[in-house]
Amino acid sequence: MVTLKNKNIIYKILVVLVVIPIFAIFIQSVILRYDYKSILPDVISIDNFKKFFTANYFKLLLSSILISIISAIITIIISLPIANILPNVSMNHRTTLYVIFLTPILVPQFVYFYGIQNVFAKTGIINTHLGVILSHVIVMMPYAIINLSNDIVLYGKKYEEVAFVMGVSDYKLYKDIMLPLIKGTLINTLGLLFIISFSQYFITLMIGGGVVKTYATYIFPLILGNDRNFAAKATFIYIAINIIIYIIFVNSKREVTDE
């Protein structure tokens, strides 16, 4: 007999599987000493978090967040025009164009990071904040294009033609009609891009060269180090930020219309 409780038990198990690892990090961040042979931890402290928050730490955290916000915004701004044009491209060429846009996701990162490192080195933007931001943008472009064009393809051509006939300028079309329609997707995408940028370790290392530090490059050696509690504290804040952004931005209601 399938009771209501049995019906969703697999779902509950899945939720537990997702939540446990995150919870583990939280637990580790408050345990200072935990002998292997004891059942309960020896020393638990939440106070230690306060010692964690030095001025330098906040500087790093904030600059990291800023880099990700800027990268996300730049990505969206430059991707919107392409997302707009895509519906106007004939079907035959669309697949080729699409594959070109998705190259950063389809080709192993390594290939183009190596090449981009060279280009940035030659133009002198390697080891600079600009370089890191641009490299993040390059990684994020495909995601922005996919998300935005999915939505715009639904409305784009339709309202464009209406606006054209009415004599409305592109700018007004955007401001009054398109933007409100894709507002949901914009917020969604913004959140997604922030998370992607905030999570980048390897490319920040390659382009930033250790000069430009982000939270990711700060955390990496901590995780591999001996002080698990300290690493867990730093990681917990890292995850918390990402998850909060995820809940606020990416989960917000999207307007999906079916035609």
Partner: peptide, 17 residues
């Protein structure tokens, strides 16, 4: 939610567990 968890953090989770 795992989508919002960076890969290096997943590594940390693996280590802890």
């Amino acid at each position: 939610v795992p989508i919002a968890v960076p890969h290096i953090v997943v590594a940390m989770m693996m280590i802890l567990l």
